[in-house]
Structure formats: C-alpha cells, structure tokens
Amino acid sequence: SKDAAQYVYDEAQKGVTQVTVNGVTFKFDNWQKLLKYAQKLLN
C-alpha cells in the first residue's frame, strides 16, 4: 500500500537499514538501498 511505502520511505530517511511492515521485516546492507526500495514502492 502507499501508506506502507511512505512509512518505509520515512524510515529510510532516518538512516535505518531495516524496517518492519505488516509483520514483515526487510533488511538492507545500507539505508540507501532501503531508500531505493521505498522509492520503487512509491512509484
């Protein structure tokens, strides 16, 4: 959902490398990768 994507995006902006959405945890090597993933979700 857009809300989940926005949440992931906001978390990535904080510099975190993992985020949990609806009980599913996504882990990334660095926050830039998390940010890229979030941007994909938002598009």
Rank of each mutant, 00 (worst) to 15 (best):
S1K: 11
S1C: 15
S1I: 12
S1W: 14
S1D: 10
K2N: 09
K2I: 08
K2P: 05
K2G: 10
K2A: 09
K2T: 12
K2Y: 04
K2F: 12
K2R: 11
K2C: 15
K2L: 10
D3T: 03
D3F: 11
D3W: 09
D3M: 10
D3Y: 03
D3P: 08
A4Q: 07
A4T: 03
A4P: 13
A4I: 05
A5H: 03
A5C: 15
A5F: 10
A5S: 06
A5T: 03
A5K: 03
A5I: 05
Q6V: 10
Q6D: 14
Q6K: 06
Q6E: 12
Q6Y: 04
Q6M: 03
Q6A: 05
Q6W: 12
Q6S: 03
Y7C: 15
Y7W: 13
Y7M: 14
Y7F: 11
Y7V: 13
Y7I: 14
V8L: 11
V8K: 09
V8T: 07
V8R: 04
V8N: 09
V8C: 15
Y9K: 02
Y9N: 08
Y9E: 13
Y9G: 13
Y9S: 12
Y9M: 09
Y9H: 10
Y9W: 15
D10S: 06
D10W: 14
D10M: 13
E11Q: 12
E11V: 14
E11S: 04
E11R: 03
E11L: 13
A12V: 10
A12S: 06
A12Y: 08
A12M: 11
Q13W: 13
Q13D: 09
Q13K: 08
Q13T: 10
Q13H: 05
Q13L: 12
K14S: 09
K14G: 12
K14F: 11
K14L: 10
K14R: 09
K14M: 10
K14D: 12
K14W: 13
G15R: 04
G15V: 11
G15A: 09
G15S: 09
G15I: 14
V16S: 07
V16F: 09
V16Q: 04
V16C: 15
V16G: 05
V16N: 07
V16H: 04
V16Y: 07
T17L: 11
T17H: 06
T17D: 07
T17A: 08
T17G: 07
T17F: 13
T17M: 07
Q18M: 07
Q18V: 08
Q18E: 05
Q18P: 05
Q18I: 11
V19K: 02
V19P: 05
V19S: 03
V19C: 15
T20R: 11
T20Q: 08
T20N: 03
T20E: 06
T20H: 10
V21K: 13
V21C: 12
V21Y: 02
V21F: 09
V21P: 10
V21D: 09
N22K: 09
N22G: 09
N22R: 11
N22W: 15
G23Q: 04
G23N: 02
G23Y: 14
G23C: 12
G23L: 15
G23V: 14
V24G: 01
V24L: 13
V24I: 05
T25P: 08
T25R: 08
T25I: 11
T25N: 04
T25L: 11
T25Y: 08
T25K: 05
T25Q: 04
F26A: 03
F26K: 02
F26T: 04
F26R: 05
F26S: 01
F26I: 06
F26Q: 03
F26C: 14
F26Y: 07
K27I: 15
K27T: 08
K27E: 02
K27N: 13
F28D: 01
F28R: 01
F28E: 01
F28T: 02
F28N: 01
F28I: 10
F28Y: 04
F28M: 06
D29I: 15
D29L: 15
D29V: 14
D29N: 12
D29F: 15
D29P: 13
D29C: 15
D29K: 10
N30H: 10
N30L: 08
N30Y: 08
N30E: 05
N30W: 15
N30M: 10
N30V: 10
N30T: 13
N30R: 09
W31V: 02
W31N: 00
W31E: 00
W31P: 00
W31L: 07
W31M: 05
Q32V: 07
Q32G: 06
Q32S: 04
Q32Y: 11
Q32N: 04
Q32W: 12
Q32L: 12
Q32F: 13
Q32T: 05
Q32E: 04
K33I: 08
K33M: 08
K33D: 06
K33P: 01
K33W: 11
K33L: 07
L34M: 02
L34W: 03
L34F: 04
L34K: 00
L34P: 00
L35A: 00
L35E: 00
L35S: 00
L35Y: 03
K36F: 06
K36V: 07
K36E: 06
K36P: 01
K36R: 09
Y37G: 00
Y37V: 03
Y37K: 02
Y37R: 03
Y37A: 01
Y37H: 02
Y37N: 01
A38D: 00
A38L: 13
A38Q: 00
A38N: 00
A38W: 09
A38S: 01
Q39P: 00
Q39G: 02
Q39Y: 13
Q39A: 06
Q39T: 04
Q39S: 03
Q39C: 15
Q39V: 05
K40N: 03
K40E: 03
K40L: 10
K40M: 11
K40A: 05
K40V: 02
K40S: 05
L41Q: 01
L41A: 01
L41H: 01
L41V: 02
L41D: 00
L41E: 00
L42H: 01
L42C: 14
L42M: 02
L42P: 00
L42R: 01
L42A: 01
L42Q: 01
N43I: 05
N43M: 09
N43Q: 08
N43K: 13
N43H: 04
